[in-house]
Design a protein around this nucleic acid. Structure first.
Length: 210
DNA sequence: GAGAAGATCTCCT
DNA sequence: GGAGATCTTCTCA
């Protein structure tokens, strides 16, 4: 029994205006919904990182607004998608009111629906490795810059919805991954023991399923 | 305009 | 565990 996109209620904009770190934590267990034609791909968010504004040296917004990071300075509840390392897109959710930078990087999701289509976008990849990284999940869901700045509070090709029931889970926090500045902040949140998170508690790559 | 860096991933050893 | 791929973005001259 597949879930229809219209049956999923998007999170309201007020959800995203509660502080970047709070949003990063509360986004866990929410449903990331990607609609491609008649197909509905759904993943449970299991890992996220908070990035601040001009007070966070690890953030793209640290040096102020540029053409690339402009969405971070926009209204909360929008997508900020950027291309990195010549190969990968990363999906962020903006979190602060207009004029104040802040975003949450979605690092990993657990496929709930449409994993067959995800496998088509990422062929020859084991189920556990489909979406366990920022670049992997965007590829599995066919997310690119055409969806940049899209409103995630409205039903459309990409939005985030509330789960009908959130499974009991323990949320852990750690240092952010892949950065060299601002590493003292424990702004990475993930669901303990979930098999789809990108790295374990010590920050090591999860190259093998557990 | 040139050069360097980068919120990553995959392959190879 | 290490290194290459790949190319956008930013900084500096």
């Amino acid at each position: 029994m597949s879930i229809k996109a219209k049956s999923i209620q998007p999170l309201p904009r007020s959800f995203y205006d509660t502080g970047t770190v709070t949003v990063a934590r509360t986004l866990l267990n929410k449903h990331l919904v990607r609609v491609i034609g008649r197909a509905v791909l759904i993943g449970r968010i299991v890992e996220a990182e908070a990035y601040g504004g001009q007070n966070d040296p690890a953030s793209h917004a640290y040096r102020g607004p540029t053409p690339r990071n402009m969405p971070m300075f926009g209204e909360p509840g929008h997508a900020y998608i950027y291309f990195t390392y010549g190969n990968h897109y990363c999906l962020n959710v903006t979190t602060r009111r207009a004029g104040v930078a802040g975003a949450v990087l979605l690092r990993a999701i657990e496929p709930l629906q449409g994993s067959n289509m995800m496998k088509r976008f990422r062929p020859n990849v084991p189920e556990l490795h489909l979406t366990n990284g920022p670049g992997k999940l965007t590829k599995a869901l066919a997310i690119d810059k055409s969806l940049n700045e899209i409103d995630l509070t409205k039903q459309g090709p990409l939005f985030i919805g509330k789960a009908s029931s959130e499974p009991p889970s323990t949320i852990k926090r750690s240092r952010r991954i892949g950065i060299t500045l601002g590493i003292g902040r424990l702004w990475r949140f993930y669901i303990e023991s979930n098999q789809y998170i990108s790295r374990n508690a010590s920050g090591n790559r999860r190259t093998h399923p557990v």
